[in-house]
């Protein structure tokens, strides 16, 4: 699967505007350099669940936002994607030897892991013809506590399946990894995610400038 990046998104992450800039070529060069180091992997499981509060197997996820997200769904996918551990060392090297690459690659890889996640979701969508997928929602969004990440990891055994680990402070390692819940529903649902559910909304520089980090 070819993992790409969205140039404008990368530039937004870097606090830049969308005007053509000499940095554009640097981003592309860095992309070509990092591409061979990607070791993308994903794992997912499809669960039955009950709501108010959301319960999956022996785990309870207390969150009004999740109840809302899944209220028309009959099953829920928990998906995890990662760009793999091989790029971690390169990121550390950039930190020492090339701060410019360090900051640009961070933004670039974020866009890439999001692209990868979207492509996997599209692939999964193909396996459920006639069904609709809700927005992807993750711990740390809205009122879904970041500590629920631990439960996701236990349910999916991500350490063993795709080599993603959690730190005691709920950071994922390798860093360029994403987990999410997606409801599978018979009816289409409006957008749930966005600035309103983002825990950065108070401090976000983009939002202050009237922009958004979303594509």
């Amino acid at each position: 699967m070819d993992i790409n990046y969205d140039l404008n998104q990368v530039k937004r992450y870097l606090g830049m505007d969308e005007q053509p800039n000499e940095i554009d070529q640097d981003i592309e060069k860095l992309y070509q350099r990092l591409k061979p180091l990607l070791d993308p992997k994903y794992y997912y499981r499809v669960f039955k669940f009950s709501l108010n509060p959301l319960k999956i197997e022996n785990r309870i996820f207390k969150s009004k936002d999740m109840d809302k997200l899944l209220n028309t769904s009959d099953r829920v996918i928990i998906l995890a994607v990662t760009l793999g551990g091989k790029i971690e060392q390169e990121i550390r090297r950039f930190n020492v030897a090339n701060k410019f690459n360090s900051i640009v690659s961070d933004a670039l890889l974020s866009s890439m892991v999001e692209d990868y996640q979207e492509k996997i979701i599209d692939q999964l969508r193909g396996e459920y013809p006639g069904k609709y997928f809700t927005d992807a929602f993750a711990p740390g969004y809205g009122d879904l506590d970041i500590n629920f990440q631990r439960d996701i990891f236990d349910l999916l055994q991500l350490e063993k399946r795709i080599g993603v680990n959690l730190t005691p402070t709920m950071l994922m390692v390798p860093r360029k990894s994403i987990t999410c819940f997606i409801g599978i529903s018979d009816i289409a649902q409006g957008k749930v995610t966005g600035c309103d559910t983002c825990n950065m909304k108070e401090t976000c520089q983009l939002r202050k400038a009237g922009k958004s980090c979303a594509r």
Binding site: L14, G15, M16, D17, N21, E22, I23, D26, N98, K99, F100, I103, V104
Partner: peptide, 11 residues
């Protein structure tokens, strides 16, 4: 200029 350019100059 933007942050990446500042870093490039600083490096």
């Amino acid at each position: 200029i933007f942050l990446p350019q500042l870093i490039k100059s600083a490096s």
